[in-house]
Design a protein around this nucleic acid. Structure first.
Lengths: 236, 236
DNA sequence: CCTACTTAGTGTGTTTTGTCAACTAAGTTC
DNA sequence: GAACTTAGTTGACAAAACACACTAAGTAGG
């Protein structure tokens, strides 16, 4: 067991113990059901057997920075490599963890759900997708974090190209519009939608590739290389 | 000196030392010079005598949560009570502090500069306003934090009522427009500006009170009670 | 007291943008 | 080959943004 001593510095500061620090992730995916979040059943106290957001401690000496700690937690516990990861907020207070003053740096991730193979090579007791609106009674203050993440996601979806990260690498404009509609919970005008997407100029048609169904085939698109999330100046 | 032992939990997790955790503030104010940021000269190593953002450690057992730690740092080091405080981002890596793996939760604050009395009852070596564009060579990675704060501020100013927090409680619409213009660095159309402000409906005229000068007097306004920052759906 | 000047505050015509719905296109199914 | 479905485009009308000019109400200076 490690005994860690805070180095002396400003006279009165060195006498305070350090808070517990963890990194927690809200991982969103879009399945047939709709928008879902990846949850884990905790194996240890506190909150043993309760569902929680995937999370872990920082490995001082191994993790070079916060984001790589988040990526390690994500990969180590779910086998998922995430194409989109963004810092959400940091929550810290004396009450959120029965073990004492605790700090959680919350991240939110978007993944293409069909890249995920749950319960393969993970050390989690149980890992599962849950519809965002059905998650309840999570460990710690993870419900509050989840609500923050949902708010942030819905806000950004209104104004940005963020939702492409929920799709596979190849998709049609109809599928892209459907992603926006399912997250926002309302229908969008096809003509206006396509105008916005064209102006943002972040997707390119894949020459010759079409999605075939029992109707007119649709052009397949992919995200332009080096794409950074673009923000519209109007709602989508 | 305190020796703090991490409580046992998940088997492999307990062996890692905790990172250093601090709270740092970027405090903006608007003076005759323009947009300025409050800096302190550090009294102790590392980076003794170097200018830095005001900051400090969390007082586990005294601070109830992160935001109150931020308010304590702000008040204790500058004597300023801030009307607007917002969490910016959390930076953590092995290189930013020579003492080891360190974490900084950065906040950004807006204050009405005329409420500030610098160097009165503070324990800081030196405290001063510095123009945001002239700050350079700050301690740690505080320049990066300052740049993040500036980006966030300018983005929000484009789309929100945030700048009122930089003004005294009573102000004219001309003064409010001037705040927007000075932060954004461009002129705004008076007619369009007033339409946006009127639609947002967050300021109310103070009956009978006018700002007198060598021209037509201007109506004085104040912020509507209980105002939360309003976001426009177009640029200001 | 009259004119010039300055900033407050409003109005207006043009241009741009959003909205809605219809239309053509190109496949499948029966 | 007719009916159906979704893809993709077009255009008319309404609404909002923009630029700029106008009126209002004070002070300053002769």
């Amino acid at each position: 067991m490690t005994c860690y001593i805070i180095p002396p510095m400003d006279a009165p500061e060195e006498t305070y113990p350090k808070p517990i620090v963890s990194v927690d992730l809200t991982i969103f995916g879009l399945t047939e059901v709709g928008l879902e979040v990846l949850l884990m059943q905790r194996g240890a106290e506190p909150f043993a057997n309760t569902w929680a957001l995937p999370g872990g401690f920082i490995h001082v000496g191994e993790d070079s920075d916060l984001e790589s700690a988040a990526r390690r937690v994500l990969y180590g516990k779910t086998g998922v490599e995430t194409p989109y990861l963004e810092q959400l907020r940091t929550i810290g207070n004396a009450a959120r963890d029965p073990r004492g003053w605790s700090l959680s740096i919350a991240y939110f991730a978007l993944i293409s759900a069909d890249n995920v193979r749950l319960r393969q090579g993970t050390n989690a007791t149980d890992v599962a997708w849950r519809p965002v609106d059905e998650a309840a009674a999570l460990a710690f203050d993870h419900m509050e974090i989840l609500r923050s993440a949902l708010t942030r996601l819905r806000n950004k979806v209104e104004y940005s190209t963020l939702p492409v990260h929920l799709l596979p690498v190849r998709f049609t404009l109809g599928e892209l519009q459907s992603v926006y509609e399912r997250i926002l919970g309302r229908r969008l005008d096809k003509s206006a939608f396509r105008k916005r997407i064209a102006e943002a100029d972040f997707v390119v048609p894949v020459a010759g590739e079409m999605r075939r169904a029992s109707n007119r085939p649709a052009q397949i698109y992919r995200v332009r290389k080096g794409h950074k999330t673009i923000f519209f100046n109007r709602t989508i």
